[in-house]
Amino acid sequence: MHNLNRPPVFVYVINVDWYFELHWLQRALATLNAGAEVHLVMGMTDPRLIDSFSRYGFICHQWNIDRKSLNPIFNLHGLMELYQLLKSISPDVIHAITIKPNIYVGLIFYLLRVPYLLSITGTGIIFSGKSLSTKLIRPVIRLLYKASKRKDVNRRIVFENREDRAYFINTGLCDSHEAVTILGAGVNPDLYEPVAEQETDTPIILFAARLLWDKGLGDLVEAARYLRSQGLKFSIQVAGIIDHSSINAIDERVLEDWSREGAIQWLGTEKNMPSLIAQANIVTLPTFYGEGVPRILIEAASCERAIVATDMPGCREIVRHGINGLLVPARNIDALAEALAQLIQNPGLRKKMGKQGRRIVERDFSEQQVISETLSLYKELLS
């Protein structure tokens, strides 16, 4: 129970600074504005970000986490460093985000015994990856999630989609009483406002995501080549973060090759997402990665853009097939090409789907809703 004479102390434990800024900043600011002292423990890669976090009033701590490494010795070092950091902060609530921080905080609880939340922001490459290394590490990760399960633990496990929640409960990775669903990060519908599509004979298809192979950009390039061979006119704009610390990052040279070939227009990392979406006609994410709820799809729907995405957990939460977009089977290039062709050739359908998408966002995916659901979980744990 925290001392009522001082503000409650919250710690966010997250793997990297840019990910925090993109997906968690608004929730952490709301925690700060509710009167808490807020610490950020994370891998810090960008001094400008740390500077701006400090100006907001967060207390920042560098944590040397190797996101790529599966080496248990290095991980043991990361675990000990995190334990020392958390012990020195003496928090009332810890909020761990993404798999490695989840596992570490679950284990540290045995020493610290502080109420905590784990955010499962999709099952990620560990659960969806097909490589030998991910297949070998998967049983270990499941074992570690199970090891942190105890009857006397005051904690919540927060999922971004219902299917991940069901998977964790059904496979014994957590109990149903502690599992909560909060749909994605939400967006501010006033910021991501509807903008009428530009009328054009060459529609723009936007792909904006972390540049990992598992996000399906390679499949999109294949589908585009086929559609162009059929005489369809369109362009593909690609924007996103090249995540060098991920084991399945797309090399920048590949993007440059595709650009030279005319397969895509490579825009680099774009900060102004509302204007990027406004100039597009269709937004697509042919992902086969373990998503939470992809933020770009919520943003697209909020801006009244029709979507083509894969029929995967997380994508299914925001895209209703035939209503605000089209869902296609993962890794099926023919189906992806067919869905894109349908929307390229049918501006009327795109417009109708865009309007429906906006309604879905206003009802289920507003940032305000996500923030208030998160803050009420914090209150539960504090009491």
Rank of each mutant, 00 (worst) to 15 (best):
L79V: 12
P101M: 02
L25D: 04
L40P: 06
N64T: 06
R67P: 04
R48T: 13
G124A: 05
G35Y: 09
T123S: 14
N102L: 09
L111K: 13
D66S: 14
I50A: 14
I126Q: 10
I73A: 07
P91R: 10
K87H: 10
V38P: 03
F74E: 12
H2Q: 08
L29I: 15
L144E: 06
T121D: 00
L76H: 05
N71R: 08
L40H: 04
Y116V: 01
F127P: 09
I50L: 11
V13G: 03
I89E: 00
G122I: 02
N71V: 05
V105S: 01
F127N: 12
N5L: 14
D46I: 14
G57Q: 07
L82R: 04
V140C: 04
R27S: 13
E37L: 15
Q26C: 09
F127W: 04
A96H: 06
L82Q: 02
P8V: 09
T134H: 10
I141G: 08
S131Y: 02
P101F: 00
Y19Q: 06
V41D: 01
D46W: 11
L107K: 10
M1L: 10
L82K: 05
W24G: 02
V114D: 02
I97E: 00
P101D: 00
V41H: 02
L86C: 13
L25H: 12
P7H: 05
I89D: 00
I108P: 02
Y104H: 13
G57L: 12
R113F: 10
Y116W: 11
S90C: 13
L4A: 11
V114Y: 03
I73R: 08
S54G: 11
S119A: 14
L86S: 08
I120R: 08
N33C: 11
L82S: 04
M42T: 13
A36H: 15
N75I: 12
Y110P: 06
I99G: 00
L82M: 08
K68L: 10
V9A: 08
L32A: 06
M44I: 15
A96M: 02
V38T: 07
L70C: 01
G122D: 02
G106S: 12
R138E: 04
C60K: 08
L136G: 00
G124K: 08
I137D: 01
I73H: 01
G106N: 07
L136W: 01
P72R: 02
K87L: 09
F74K: 13
N75Q: 15
K100R: 05
P47R: 09
W18Y: 03
T123W: 07
P7S: 08
Y116L: 09
I126C: 10
Y116S: 04
V9Q: 08
G78T: 13
W63C: 05
I97N: 07
D51K: 14
D92W: 06
Q26E: 15
S69T: 15
R138C: 02
D17W: 00
L136Y: 01
V38M: 10
L117I: 15
H2R: 13
R142S: 10
N71S: 11
H77D: 07
T134R: 04
F109N: 14
H39A: 07
I73N: 01
Y145T: 08
I94H: 03
I125M: 14
S90A: 14
D66E: 06
G106I: 07
R113L: 12
A36V: 11
N33H: 15
Y116E: 00
D46M: 13
Y83T: 08
L82Y: 03
I120Q: 07
L111M: 13
G35W: 12
